[in-house]
Design a protein around this nucleic acid. Structure first.
Lengths: 115, 115
DNA sequence: AAAACATTCAACTAAATGGTTGACAGTAGC
DNA sequence: GCTACTGTCAACCATTTAGTTGAATGTTTT
């Protein structure tokens, strides 16, 4: 391992530990957004949002594609899986075992089926 | 809500964003441990570990029971579910939808069945 | 009662975070 | 070629984090 795998996990969890960044993820999960579009709903400077985006980018939760002067942001491909794995791994050792996660999955599949 | 839900989520994700704290969670998921026991494998002061434990406790990922002079630590009951829900919610909007999480779940169930 | 043990408290340091503002660089449109 | 727009850079500030050390608190053992 050139870069310790846990360092990447640190970045992923840290990136998720801020409401603005979670909100940004939710938005770009729905549709590609530019930096300005992402910043618009927040009560903070554009630069602050730009920094949040960089945090997400370093955690590879967000990918950016420069198109002329705008930067189009969308979800990065994989790392949520790593985070989910950690949770599942811990969750698997829980009292209730996998039941909670399983129920959740079923609910979501129903939702996804309807959409 | 007296305390915003997202503030609690912040604490949960933040608590997960450190390898020592994840390791502590893994250990107490297997068996109840005292603070000194938890500190033993780490190359840092007991006080440092004590602080990590407090971080996990504030996120309600860890519960502590004082038994005489030792503090027995075990997993807290619920909050991993909240974190998993966020991930699943984002994951559900992913390209590959729920497939990744689902595969993971199946693998884990097989493992759990064997254990 | 004294000694040993488990854990926290208090004070401190170095570095990282989350935010601001003003200047700058690249791109688009008139 | 200006001018307007998108986004980052640079410098700064306040707060939090992760760690240290030494003293203090409470509990068990002898």
């Amino acid at each position: 391992m050139v870069e310790p795998r846990s360092a990447h996990l640190d970045r992923v969890f840290r990136a998720l530990a801020h409401p603005a960044r979670r909100e940004i993820l939710r938005r770009i999960a729905r549709e590609e957004c530019t930096v300005t579009e992402l910043a618009e709903p927040f009560d903070m400077s554009l630069e602050a949002v730009s920094k949040h985006i960089q945090v997400l980018e370093r955690a590879r939760l967000l990918r950016r594609k420069r198109r002329g002067r705008v930067h189009a942001c969308r979800l990065g491909p994989t790392p949520l899986r790593d985070a989910a794995k950690v949770l599942a791994e811990l969750g698997a050792l829980w009292n209730e075992r996998l039941d909670a996660l399983e129920h959740l999955l079923l609910e979501l599949k129903v939702e996804a089926g309807k959409a």
